[in-house]
Amino acid sequence: MDTGVPLSVAVSVVGKRQNPELVRVAGAGKEKCCYFFWQGRNSTVSEKGTSALMTVELDEERGAQVQVQQGKEPPCFLQCFNGGMIVHSGRREEEEENAQNEWRLYCVRGEVPVEGHLLEVACHCSSLRSRASMILLSVNRAIIYLWHGCKAQPHTRDVGRTAACRIKEQ
C-alpha cells in the first residue's frame, strides 16, 4: 500500500450556533463530502501526482481534498477503516516475489481500537520493541501470534487484541 489511494468520505459538519433553541430545531448539521488521498512513505513523485489527479476526477461535489502521508494519518482518516487499516511493506508488483516469505510481522499503532492500524515491519527479532505490541502472521498456515513488549501500555495491548481478533475473523 505504498502508492496513493483516494478515499471519499462523507462527514457531518455542525456550524457555530449560539442559541440552544436553534440546535434543537436545525438538527445535527449539513452533510459534506471530503476526499482523502493517502500516500505511502515510498511513493514516487509520479504516484503522488496520480493520486491527487484521481481525487480531482472523483470530485463531483467539490468536496475538500486532504492529503494524508503515511505515519501522519489523522484520527478521522483512521476511523474510516474502523481499526482495520493495514499497511504492507513493498509494492504490489513485488508481492508475488515475496510470496515465499511465509511469515509477516506487523507493529500495532493507534491509541484506541477504532483508530488502530498495523504497519508491516521486517520479520526479524530486531524489529521487536519493548513498548509495542506486534502481530506475527502466517496466512498459509492460518497462525496468528500477538506479542506484547514488557513496557507496552494497556491501550496498546487493547488495540493489539482488537486487531488480532479482526484478522482472525477474516
Score class of each variant (00 low, 15 high):
residue 57 E to R: 14
residue 66 V to F: 09
residue 69 Q to K: 12
residue 169 E to C: 10
residue 86 I to W: 01
residue 167 I to V: 02
residue 66 V to P: 08
residue 64 A to R: 15
residue 125 C to Q: 10
residue 117 H to V: 05
residue 68 V to T: 08
residue 126 S to F: 02
residue 76 C to M: 12
residue 106 Y to E: 00
residue 58 L to H: 07
residue 118 L to S: 01
residue 115 E to D: 00
residue 79 Q to M: 15
residue 126 S to R: 08
residue 151 K to E: 12
residue 59 D to K: 10
residue 150 C to T: 14
residue 42 N to L: 05
residue 142 A to G: 06
residue 75 P to H: 06
residue 149 G to Y: 00
residue 112 V to N: 11
residue 162 T to S: 09
residue 107 C to L: 12
residue 144 I to R: 06
residue 76 C to L: 12
residue 117 H to K: 01
residue 56 V to E: 13
residue 134 M to C: 08
residue 116 G to H: 10
residue 123 C to A: 11
residue 74 P to M: 07
residue 99 A to F: 03
residue 70 Q to C: 12
residue 65 Q to W: 11
residue 47 E to H: 06
residue 77 F to V: 07
residue 93 E to Q: 13
residue 161 R to Y: 01
residue 57 E to W: 08
residue 138 S to D: 07
residue 92 R to G: 15
residue 157 R to P: 04
residue 79 Q to R: 15
residue 119 L to Q: 03
residue 139 V to K: 10
residue 74 P to N: 10
residue 100 Q to F: 01
residue 116 G to S: 14
residue 154 P to K: 05
residue 141 R to G: 01
residue 134 M to H: 15
residue 119 L to D: 05
residue 56 V to G: 10
residue 162 T to Y: 01
residue 55 T to A: 13
residue 117 H to L: 05
residue 142 A to N: 12
residue 166 R to K: 15
residue 86 I to V: 13
residue 134 M to S: 12
residue 99 A to R: 12
residue 130 S to I: 09
residue 131 R to E: 14
residue 161 R to L: 02
residue 62 R to E: 11
residue 75 P to L: 12
residue 151 K to G: 03
residue 63 G to T: 09
residue 108 V to T: 11
residue 145 Y to E: 12
residue 113 P to G: 00
residue 101 N to T: 08
residue 163 A to D: 00
residue 131 R to Q: 13
residue 133 S to V: 08
residue 100 Q to D: 03
residue 70 Q to H: 13
residue 94 E to Y: 02
residue 47 E to D: 13
residue 92 R to W: 10
residue 67 Q to V: 11
residue 44 T to A: 12
residue 146 L to D: 07
residue 157 R to I: 13
residue 49 G to Q: 15
residue 162 T to D: 04
residue 126 S to M: 05
residue 115 E to L: 03
residue 107 C to R: 04
residue 43 S to M: 03
residue 152 A to D: 10
residue 123 C to P: 01
residue 71 G to C: 06
residue 165 C to T: 07
residue 66 V to L: 11
residue 61 E to H: 09
residue 165 C to R: 07
residue 86 I to Y: 00
residue 64 A to V: 14
residue 93 E to C: 13
residue 103 W to K: 08
residue 129 R to M: 10
residue 161 R to D: 02
residue 105 L to Q: 04
residue 68 V to C: 07
